[in-house]
Amino acid sequence: MNRKINSEKAFHRFAFVVLLIFAVICILPILLIVIASFTDEHVLLAEGYRFLPAQMSTMAYNYLWKQSDMMVRAYGVSILVTAAGTILSIILSTLFAYPLSRKDFKYRNFFSFFVFFTMLFSGGIVPSYMMWSRFFHMKDTIWALVVPTYLMSAFNVLLIRNFYSNNVPDALVEAARIDGASEFTIFGRVMLPLSVPVIATVALFTGLSYWNDWINGLYYINDPALYSIQNLLIRLMNNIQYLNSGAAAGALSGGMTALPSASVRMAIAVIGVIPVVLAYPFLQKYLIRGTVIGAVKG
C-alpha cells in the first residue's frame, strides 16, 4: 500500500517536471519574438535576437498605435465572427453527430461516410467562390466570414459521434426511451449534458479556426471595414513576402519607405495573439468544469 502511494507521488512529481519542461520549451521561443518586438530596430539587426537586448524601444507599438482605430474595428469583426461561427457550428455538429452514434439508425454508415468524404475531396476554390459569391451574394458581407467552409467540419462531427457512442452508456438512452422520452428529449436532456467535455473541446477548435482564419477574408472581403484581425496581419505580411519574392521587380518605383520593419512585424504578430491568450483562461475554466461534470455524472 505504502509503495503504491509512493509510486503515485513519484508519478505526480514526474508529470509536473516533464510538463514544466515542455511548457518552457513552448513559451521561450514566443518570448523571444515578444522581446524582439520591443527591441530597437537597429539593435535587432546589429546584435541579433537576444532575450536581453541592449536597447529596448516601443517604436514598433507607437507605429501601430497610429492605426489603432483600424485594429479595434478588426478585433470587433474577429470576435463577432468567432462567436457566431462557433455557436452555429456547435448546433449543426452536435445534431448531426447524434444519429450517427445510434446503432439503431439504419443509414449511420452511409451518413458517416457522407460527412467523412467532404474531408477528402474538394472542387477547389473556384466553384466554392461561385457558390457563395454569386448564388448567395455573400461577398463583402459579414456572412462570408462565418458561413463558407468552417461551419461544419467532418473532423468535429466524427469526434462528437465517437464521444457519444463511447462515453454515453446505451443503458442510459434506453432507460430514457422506456420512460417515453422522444429522441429530441433524449438528445437535449441526456446527450448534450453528458457531452460537455467534447463540446467544449470542439468549441475551442472551431473558435480557433474562426479566429485564425484568413482565407475567407482573402477571397470574399474587399472592404477593409470587414477585415478581421488575421486579414489585417496576413495582408501586411503577404505584401512583404510578395516584395521579397521579387515578383514585383520592375513594377515599383518609389514609396518603399512605408513598409513595416522587422520589429513592427513582430509587434503585429504579438498583437494578433494577445486576445486569444487573454480569452484562453476563461475557455479553459469552462473546459475543466466541463470535464468535471463529465466525470462525475458519467
Binding site: 459569391s133 495582408r235 503577404n238 514585383a248
Partner: peptide, 18 residues
C-alpha cells in the same frame, strides 16, 4: 487589390464571371 493577391483575385473574378 493587394499586390500579393491580385493575380489570384483577377482569375477568380473572371472564372466566376464577375
Amino acid at each position: 487589390l493587394a499586390a500579393s493577391e491580385q493575380a489570384q483575385k483577377v482569375s477568380l473574378a473572371m472564372a466566376s464571371g464577375e
